[in-house]
């Protein structure tokens, strides 16, 4: 690659004007970008598009076993079988509902906390800004699985340090009860990502011109009033963006619940989230069905993020 690229003489490619004859320029403008972008594009197609196409094709087949079991199972073309099975599969549809509920509750809560913390750190009453920014951001440096492991120790029914602290108050949180376990998972996700979102919102707050804030203060606006009428509208696009990424992130919920699963005494089922459900199908050797579930999830995520971007209008983003 190096040799071919360096042999491309001085023929310039790109925006800059060039004195070289047209024919020569043509080949150069195409060849260099092709060589430079090529490796990435090829790998991208192989690792992103090819698997999706492969899964989509695979999902159109079903595994048939002969009645006597004398011959091995064969794959038969039956394009709708896996999809109708997925829609009828109570566990799979329940997992979709579960992550939807998770997204609807966890994302607004997390973003409200992140926005509040960013506004407080940005406020004139705050001391030790660097420390609070860092402490909020530190969980982001902990891998999702490690965070889930650490929190699983926090939740452990025998020895939960959280419940140990709450004991004098006579409170005990049943982290692994059926109705609670989803929010135990939500807490881990919130812990991991609040600081990340806070930093993004804080960066947007920093870009508000100081004169605007000064003028509002001279006019006698209170700190709350400034936050509500100037600061929050100014970080709207940052909020939209963090919301989109968080909602999409909910669909991929996997690490936290699957780490909690073995110690949850059944509250976290093997089909707790859509990805866990698809993985359970893989573990059962039913690849076409796993493929169909993956395709359904990918399409749903695509539709949701498309609709969300349409509704909020990418146009008004800075």
């Amino acid at each position: 690659m190096t040799t071919t690229a360096t042999r491309t003489e001085a023929a310039p490619a790109g925006r800059a004007a060039d004195p070289v004859p047209r024919g020569r320029r043509r080949t150069a403008t195409l060849r260099t970008p092709l060589l430079f972008c090529g490796p990435f594009v090829v790998l991208f197609l192989a690792m992103y598009l090819a698997p999706i196409v492969y899964a989509a094709v695979k999902s159109l087949f079903v595994i048939r076993r002969s009645g006597l079991g004398l011959t091995g199972p064969t794959e038969v073309f039956d394009p709708l079988a896996n999809y109708s099975r997925a829609l009828d599969d109570g566990d799979f549809t329940a997992s979709l509902g579960r992550v939807a509920l998770f997204g609807v509750v966890q994302v607004p809560v997390m973003l409200a906390v992140a926005l509040t913390l960013a506004l407080l750190i940005d406020s004139r009453s705050a001391r030790g800004r660097g420390f609070f920014r860092l402490s909020g951001f530190l969980p982001y440096a902990i891998p999702g699985v490690s965070a889930a492991l650490v929190w699983s120790f926090m939740y452990a029914s025998q020895s939960s340090p959280v419940n140990h602290l709450l004991e004098p108050a006579g409170v005990r949180i049943p982290f692994f009860d059926d109705g609670v376990v989803l929010w135990s998972v939500a807490n881990i996700v919130t812990w991991s990502w609040t600081g990340y979102n806070m930093i993004i919102i804080y960066a947007a707050l920093q870009s508000i011109p100081a004169e605007v804030l000064e003028a509002a203060r001279t006019d006698g606006a209170s700190a709350l009033r400034i936050a509500w009428s100037i600061k929050i509208p100014a970080v709207r696009s940052a909020l939209v963006l963090t919301a989109v990424f968080s909602i999409i992130g909910s669909a991929q919920l996997f690490n936290e619940p699957s780490v909690l699963q073995p110690i949850s005494s059944g509250a976290v089922s093997s089909t707790f989230t859509p990805i866990m459900s698809a993985q359970a199908a893989v573990a059962a050797g039913d690849y076409p069905y796993a493929a169909a579930q993956s395709v359904v999830l990918a399409v749903l995520v695509g539709v949701v993020s498309f609709v969300f971007f349409r509704l909020t209008g990418r146009g008004d983003q800075a």
Partner: peptide, 27 residues
């Protein structure tokens, strides 16, 4: 660089940024 297909490549990249990698893992 200006080259044909630049917009398509960048569009694909942006779309892929939005979709979490984990969705591609099972396929």
């Amino acid at each position: 660089y200006q080259f044909p297909g630049r917009g398509v490549v960048f569009g694909l990249v942006l779309a892929a940024v939005l979709i979490p990698k984990i969705l591609f893992t099972l396929p």
